[in-house]
Every structure is written in structure tokens, then in C-alpha cells.
Amino acid sequence: MSAVASGPWTPTPLPIRGVTRETRDTFTFALDAPADGFRFAPGQFNMLYVFGVGEVPISVSGDPARPERLLHTVRAVGAVTRAMCALRRGKSIGVRGPFGHGWPLDEARGRDVLVVAGGLGLAPLRPAIYHLLRHRERYGRVAILYGARSPGELLYRRELERWCARREVEARVIVDRAGPGWAGPVGAVPSLLARVKVPPGSTVAMVCGPEVMMRFTVRDLERLGVARERIFVSLERDMKCGLGLCGHCQLGPHFVCKDGPVLRYDRVAELIHVREV
């Protein structure tokens, strides 16, 4: 796993090659990767630094097989991400990483894979989806379920359409609320679980989204018979150092930045419900 050249503590400035507006407040930044590319595992994140403003953890959202194209999808919600979303081509963003453990794509080989994403949670899962589609023959059934607030807030719309059109993958999209122009399903993303075939004995589930959405989804997966050991969630905590040293993102015995952000559900199930941690 290569990191940017300056080591884990020092951000390397990488120029913005392009910015794509995904939704009203969400943008995908393409950064110029270092000469030898930026290698990462699907699900890993980088610490992105807006000079003079601050640093935030953002998952890599691009294709792991294209290390020359380093992509991050960012929603403008806080001081740093708002400043980041105001940057345009030619400006630089400081990058430290990649950090953490990603999705269990090797462990899932030979099994059915269910990807469940909510809102911005599709961004950390997109590299895993690229991998699954590129190595389709290594996996059993592959299903992608994605929920968003409204049709206007769906990420990667053109890709979603392509995934939905592919025969070798079952992709479904649902929104919480829809206007007259929407012909797709309406409801919460766990309700899609009833509409795909999830053989409980062989499925590995990868879930990412707001934590409440993940808890509801896991509850339904367990009801369908998927064991906790084969459910993986990507958690978000207050990641700062990225190296498991500062303790800001500690969740019981785990440092989310180092042991996660992707964690096996049986290892965090009890901790997620402890409000004090």
C-alpha cells in the first residue's frame, strides 16, 4: 500500500485536476496523484487538508485499478468541507493517507455480496463496487442497494443507471421522497432487502451510510439470517491522526481510523449501542 511521499504526518499538496458537482452540496474532487500513482484499498480514507482551514477524513471514492486518478466525494457541511467545496481546478489540497482497513473483498471471494449504501455512504463503497464488477467471476450474486433523500440527491447518477442496466448485478435505488418525475421505488433503503435474493448462508454484506440507517439495515439483515460475522459496516468517528495514536476516534478497544473504518459488525455491535463511547 503506497502512501503519499512525505509520510503519514505531513500532508502532500496535490493539485485539483477537476471538480464534478454531484448534487446541490456534494462535489467529487479529482486530484493529480503522485507520479507512481496513489494505491489504496476500497474503503480506506485520506485526511484532506484545506490549507489554513483544517483537516477532515474523507474516503477515497475512485477506482482502485486506476491509481493515477485520485477521487474524493465531499459534502459541504462544516467549515473545512465548505472551504474545500469552494476550491477549483489548479488549487491544491493536502493529502495524508491512505489510512485504515477497507472492505473484505478477499474474504468475500466465492460468496454472494450485498452492498447497501445510504446517502453519501455510496462514496466509500464505490471503489468496492468497481472491484466487484471488474472481478465479477470471483463472486456469486452481487446486489447493490442504494437509498437517498430524493432523486436530486443521488450520487453518481450515470453510473447508477449503468449498474442498474447490467445483467450480472442486481442494482436497486430508492428515495425517501419523490416528486412526479420519479418512477423508481420510494421508501427506506432496508425495505429493498425484501426485493433482492439474499441467501443468508452465503452472503457477505457491506453497509455504509448514516449510523441509524446502518443499524436498521443490520437488524433486517439479521432477521433474514445473515450472520453478524459476515456483516461489515463503515463507521465514522472523530478521526484526527489517522494512525490510532491520538485516541479521538476510539470506540471501546478499537481505533476507527486504524482498525476501521470498515469493521466486522459482531466486533462493534454492542459498542454501537453504548452512548457514552
Partner: peptide, 11 residues
């Protein structure tokens, strides 16, 4: 879950 409007405020 729909009514919580979870996706509106996530970082």
C-alpha cells in the same frame, strides 16, 4: 427511518 431525514445532515 424515512421521517428521520438522515441523509440531509450527514457529513
Amino acid at each position: 427511518l424515512q421521517r428521520l431525514d438522515l441523509y440531509g445532515n450527514e457529513p
